[in-house]
């Protein structure tokens, strides 16, 4: 979460994630009412907002990170901060900062054209989410609309640490591979290194770990500690099974 506790620390933590073996960075733009997020990311967002973090500052942070590395950068936020900035302005600023993709968890497929069109025009990927409840034909339509990769929501519920993975994940991933040639990034509740390896083994092209990294970063506020934590999460992943194929191809 960008701005928790402040943007300078977020920059160091982001660098540490890459050093630890992350192949893609997702930067959260805090929003006051994050309905898709569990307690870890909600609280991080509240802290970032209290620290005065603004959406344009987070895009500025992305631009600074882009100066230092070629790692794919994805912004994650909700619809209202994007609308408040203005869709064309948001797309233009994200593109000029070198952002590769955007995830908006409260943007349905039906509502997505209004934001995808300006992002397409600036070459920024609008990454759509597909859920466990999504019927197959709808999943195919979502995959068609998605750019960069398809974000597979692993479970019912919000983001947040969980003790186990859902049992039907392998079958869902296989079914999604059949309807889409996009890489699949799987997240929501992926908490431990064992989860990461299990999700990769289930056929995911990328594994998204959010809440447990946000929580660790908030507890320790120590880039070196976070580098080791990410390295543990990534242990045992073959390079081709990680997110390196995702989203970076066009640059």
């Amino acid at each position: 979460m960008a701005g928790d506790p402040d943007l300078r620390m977020t920059e160091s933590l982001a660098t540490a994630c890459e050093a630890g073996g992350a192949d893609l960075l997702e930067l959260g733009i805090p929003f006051s009412d994050p309905i898709a997020d569990g307690p870890e990311i909600q609280e991080a967002g509240q802290r970032a907002l209290r620290a005065g973090t603004r959406p344009r500052d987070v895009i500025g942070l992305a631009a600074r990170i882009r100066q230092e590395t070629e790692i794919p950068l994805v912004l994650m936020t909700y619809m209202n901060p994007v609308l408040a900035m203005g869709l064309p302005t948001f797309a233009e600023r994200a593109a000029s900062a070198g952002v590769d993709g955007v995830v908006v968890p409260d943007l349905s497929l039906e509502a997505s054209p209004e934001i995808r069109e300006p992002l397409d025009a600036h070459g920024v990927d609008m990454i759509q989410l597909v859920a466990p409840s999504t019927p197959p034909t709808r999943a195919a339509a979502i995959a068609d609309a998605s750019r960069g990769f398809l974000y597979v929501v692993a479970r019912y519920g919000t983001t947040g640490a969980r003790s186990s993975l859902p049992e039907d994940l392998r079958g869902r991933i296989a079914a999604l591979h059949r309807v889409s040639s996009l890489p699949l990034g799987v997240g929501f509740g992926v908490t431990t290194g064992a989860h990461v390896r299990a999700v990769a083994a289930a056929g995911a092209d990328g594994v998204v770990v959010g809440s447990s990294i946000v929580r660790r970063a908030a507890e320790r506020r120590d880039p070196e500690d976070l580098r080791k934590f990410v390295a543990e999460l990534a242990t045992g992943l073959a390079v081709e099974r990680t997110t390196s194929s995702i989203s970076s191809s066009k640059r």
Binding site: I35, A36, M79, P105, D106, L107, S108, L109, E110, A111, Q128, L129, V130, A131, P132, S133, T134, P135, R138, I142, V153, Y156, G157
Partner: peptide, 18 residues
């Protein structure tokens, strides 16, 4: 799609859409 003029719509996580 559930709009009144420019207002309304469905801005929710995909899990809820079905």
């Amino acid at each position: 799609r559930g709009y009144f003029g420019q207002f309304g719509g469905q801005y929710v996580p995909e899990t809820l859409m079905p």
